[in-house]
Design a protein around this nucleic acid. Sequence first.
DNA 1: CCTTTTGAGTGAACACCGTAAGCTTACGGT
DNA 2: ACCGTAAGCTTACGGTGTTCACTCAAAAGG
Lengths: 249, 249
Amino acid sequence: MYAHEAGTATPRTRRERLREATLTEIKETARHHLAEHGPNGVSLRAVARDMGMTAPGLYRYFSSLDDLMTALRADFFTELSQTVTRAEEGVDRDDVDGRILASLRAFRSWAVTHRAEFALLFASSAPEHPVPHDSAALESGRRFAATFLTLFDRLLEERRFPLPAEEDLPPALVRQLVAFGEQTRFTTPNASIGALRVLTSCWVRLYGLVCMEVFQHLAFSMEAMEPMFEAELRDILTDLGVQYRPPTH
Amino acid sequence: MYAHEAGTATPRTRRERLREATLTEIKETARHHLAEHGPNGVSLRAVARDMGMTAPGLYRYFSSLDDLMTALRADFFTELSQTVTRAEEGVDRDDVDGRILASLRAFRSWAVTHRAEFALLFASSAPEHPVPHDSAALESGRRFAATFLTLFDRLLEERRFPLPAEEDLPPALVRQLVAFGEQTRFTTPNASIGALRVLTSCWVRLYGLVCMEVFQHLAFSMEAMEPMFEAELRDILTDLGVQYRPPTH
DNA sequence: CCTTTTGAGTGAACACCGTAAGCTTACGGT
DNA sequence: ACCGTAAGCTTACGGTGTTCACTCAAAAGG
């Protein structure tokens, strides 16, 4: 409702400007601590100390450390979305293949250059409480997903690859995919059940690939994972009827 | 060297028996805390309190909290290995397809029934220090990998699926795969570069699938992920020339 | 312009945490 | 019987998240 009155412009009053400034300063220093000392190395007291204030003061901005972390997650999701989108926009609008390549590579390279941030986004859910269904982080996660969904929709539009028929999928899987389509709001005319099946399958492969790299699972042997990423990317895209091209860098 | 003298039998002297007992008691209570309060909810003081002793006493058994966690990781790896192996042994020795199905399903079901433990094993690497190359946890991880490697070797033996030729792979990828083969000690005659390429590809898919389920990434929509796991499992195994069969439970 | 209200930030306090040092006590081998 | 060794405790230090009461400067309202 505030956003409705003031738009997205910077708030006018001096107080609000200052508040905004310290708010982002808090998040920035917290991010530094995150990157340098890992997710558990972020402490309110240390952040406050770095900023020249005391820990209780931060409670004017975040109701808890967890709240700060949640805010960071939301920020990272939008940053990641923007990174991907910008990479995509650097390619000709009609070059769908190029846009997809650029997007997925941007996703990976953000992840490997921001390991701690990526870990916070994709692997820090506490396994005990079963994920809040309302949080703002979840919403920004959805927006992030949307980035890829629209690209995928272009592929569907062009009928690049054969889709499995709904009748060939087990009913339980169909139910799951229907729910998935509703929850992600990916309900374009092209988004058939078969399409969702392919989408989730590809996403899982990409996700696994990047996770493995970020968490350094094969890292004892595979120091620079890029060749493997590219090989896997090629396979995934071939299944989607997308023409692979090696990276330019 | 102790192991050499005493074998793997329980140590004889009273002191050693007691020590062994409290050692496992510490790890068990720590595991309870892990499962109930997540990886960050494990504290030496709380563990000690639950056992009726004080925190410094635990230092007779573990040199730090981190040391305890590392020991837990090693234990979990061997437990997971045993779970998979036992599932495999419940199937006819000659039914390679059945053994593979049972193994991979056992892997998933251990992961989803032991989320916190799985998270500790597969997604808790602090992104700052780049993984010690010597730790015992890494060694038990290798033993875990070996479980799947031998199964995969059977498939190679039987020439179930076509292998990509080494010449068709980018040189950088070949170098990576060579290093991977050496580090995992997966150097049977069948383990060609092409075979390693297929192996890593399949493993990444499986890993991504299970991670996604454990960390509840698509969970806002996909509550019971089993149908998706089965569908994906089917696809992966088909690529490996393994005949899929639905689970019996 | 002066008053009132608001809100940013502080200091002290509480309850935790990991860990080091020094001590007591009991067991085990000689 | 003795004595070394190791288990466990007490104490202590520095760190953490969080609450509460407080100050003080800035904004708001007359």
